[in-house]
Design a protein around this nucleic acid. Sequence first.
DNA 1: GTGGTCTAGACCACG
DNA 2: GTGGTCTAGACCACT
Lengths: 137, 137, 137, 137
Amino acid sequence: MTRRSPLMLQIVTGDPRPIVRQIGDGIKRLIASGDLAAGAALPSVRGLAQQLSINPNTVAKAYAELTAEGWVHARTGLGLFVAEQRQRLSDAERGRRLDEAVDRFVSDVIGLDYPAETVVERVAGELAHYATGRKSA
Amino acid sequence: MTRRSPLMLQIVTGDPRPIVRQIGDGIKRLIASGDLAAGAALPSVRGLAQQLSINPNTVAKAYAELTAEGWVHARTGLGLFVAEQRQRLSDAERGRRLDEAVDRFVSDVIGLDYPAETVVERVAGELAHYATGRKSA
Amino acid sequence: MTRRSPLMLQIVTGDPRPIVRQIGDGIKRLIASGDLAAGAALPSVRGLAQQLSINPNTVAKAYAELTAEGWVHARTGLGLFVAEQRQRLSDAERGRRLDEAVDRFVSDVIGLDYPAETVVERVAGELAHYATGRKSA
Amino acid sequence: MTRRSPLMLQIVTGDPRPIVRQIGDGIKRLIASGDLAAGAALPSVRGLAQQLSINPNTVAKAYAELTAEGWVHARTGLGLFVAEQRQRLSDAERGRRLDEAVDRFVSDVIGLDYPAETVVERVAGELAHYATGRKSA
DNA sequence: GTGGTCTAGACCACG
DNA sequence: GTGGTCTAGACCACT
């Protein structure tokens, strides 16, 4: 139950997001989708770095951010484990971040000339993978 | 048609997007919403720079990108004008960018723990302000 | 008002806290005490690194954490600025962190054999420097 | 007096403190609160390790630190016993540690935006559970 | 000039 | 073995 199997993670060089963010986003999704349950062990810094052929420091940085944001917690000498999820941000802050994300998304998409329904459906489809209120899968 | 009135544009220092992008996004929005019709003239580089109190180089760079992406075109000695509507990006490129934007959006929102419907409604609401689908099709 | 004067910051090699944390804590205090008002510019990464005779990456890391926690925000090409303060954490999370801090503090102090009043007075004295609800100075 | 009953100790995996420290802090608290009187025997290294389901090395290290700090003393062939109350640290050292603890505590709490009185009351409340001041003075 | 990212390699405490 | 910290030096985008 705490075995460290290779994660379903891959970094894409073409992706404009920095590697650190790709790792962070990827793991957040695995947690949100329930593929990584609370208490599960993450791959070691060195292990994941080797698996992805990147520098261990880059992985460590991504892990540090996930730790700071409360997604995982480190037990020195043992490794990283998925934390219990809990509401860390104030409602006001959550609202601000939603606004920001929506705003940016609209800016990104507005020039692509897709019908609004198409865009909305794509978003809805993606979000469907992640249960409301997380990990109800 | 070609008068150069001050654009309804403003840069926000708190915005995480670089200024170049804020200008580009802003003008794309004005075009998409119809506030800037095809054939309309854009403010001069110096004029807009002064209006927004930013470096003219920054405006010039934003304009260069809009030109490269086909949103506007330069008429030597006259200035920049909003281009006639046409397919600016290949379908493949459009699809790729949609994917990218959706992906990023989902990553941004996933930790906020909002019900999917809430998020989808917000996006739909924002998109409703702009032209739905391609106008010159 | 946005001038970058040398900060009242110093790192102590004997301090058990890592340098990154000393910098972060120091700046948080300067902000909390009002010495660094919202909108004020922080010293540049390279500048502070030189001033403290440490590696720029170390400063950058400290700054990145402050940014992630919302104390400051970066404007690429311009520098870092003190952010408007706002309630980012949920009440539950704030409570958890208070509990944790108190718990740790008691553990640290319990063996030193000081009268409780002495300890409490020291804490009260230190906290008095930082106005309730921040920057009311 | 010297019977070796199971200690009222537990390690918490979620606790940010390393296990070594949790053990040390826990025993110090038991001594400070009087639950472990001077002369009382501590559980054996192997026994406590088994009770807490942790590595004996970890317990041994914690015991070594307690011994070095003068909290307990070893009687060869018999085990560890709580030391008679005496000045374990120099005044300078005690003062330094108090400063350090207060400093760290203030840094931890400063961003949580609680009124100073609230924080002070919490500290006072926690400290009240333990002996106020040195007991054998 | 500014901050942000990435690599490489070192040392530490912890289990 | 684990994660955490620090240094050194490089390249990038932005102003």
